[in-house]
Amino acid sequence: MADDLELRFERTVQADSRIEPRDWMPDGYRKTLIRQIAQHAHSEIIGMQPEGNWISRAPSLRRKAILLAKVQDEAGHGLYLYSATETLGADREDLTTKLIEGRQKYSSIFNYPTLTFADVGVIGWLVDGAAICNQVPLCRTSYGPYARAMIRICKEESFHQRQGYELLMTMMRGTQQQKDMVQDSVNRWWWPALMMFGPPDSESTNTEQSMAWRIKRDTNDELRQKFVNMSVPQAEALGVTFPDPELKWNEERGQYDFGAPDWDEFWQVVKGGGVCNEQRIAHRRKAHEDGSWVREAAAAHAQKHAQKEGAA
């Protein structure tokens, strides 16, 4: 019977059909998905902080409304993804606890600080741009609820990227000081954005199995290359450069060559040594703890009303 179930699972995956919540699936598949989707959900939730930092200081009402909508979207994306983990038997409360106790990770990019308003634009353009590269193939991931969440997310990310690029175009039409601010921001975010695709394929421990299960559809290096190819013409149109002396078009490969990110820095940030790791988690913990009375009050209110209705 177990073999039969496993065979059906394998066939479904191989046929590029979707695995749905009540289907039988290997324990490893379930665990890998919960880990990956939770990490993704945590990234969306923690990702509200770097940009949220600028909401109260946005330079105009228009930019403020846009930024508010964007940060609200990140919250929404986190919720779609937590919802997907729950179809696998995960508990949302438990995932939040794991995040604030540092037992589950989120994308390292959010451990870098947002020093100027140009960072809001560069995050939209490069960080959300890299996220889109990662996420578009996930719309075809083998687990149905995850794929459906990704489709919704990708639609909304497109707004995020375009508002960022438009913000930067506006600044690049401004004073020299504003232009310098954009270039400085690009210099700080370029390498961390490249690191968002994860370690090189030669060092990525999860890739092979995830590709076989069709959870992942492309390798880290493939996606990184795609992102570089897409970004260079966008930088040229904007009038900024990337801080990589090795970046140049390779006629033979039909792609851009580029340098290697500082992987020591990457691992250091992953392990908690980034500029903002502690601050991000402390803030999330505080928000969770400060909100506990609201959760308790709402639950008590609902219980009281349910009792009244029961009595009537």
Binding site: A69, Q72, D73, G76, L79, Y80, S83, A84, E86, T87, R92, P145, R148, A149, E156, R295, A298, A299, H301, A302, H305, A306
Partner: peptide
């Protein structure tokens, strides 16, 4: 379209509006 947590039906509707129908 998905799921969410809420203390009662009315809050579930309001949360659903914010999570699933922002556009």
């Amino acid at each position: 379209v998905g799921s969410l947590h809420a203390p009662d039906a009315e809050m579930a509707l309001r949360n659903a509006r914010d999570v699933y129908t922002r556009r």
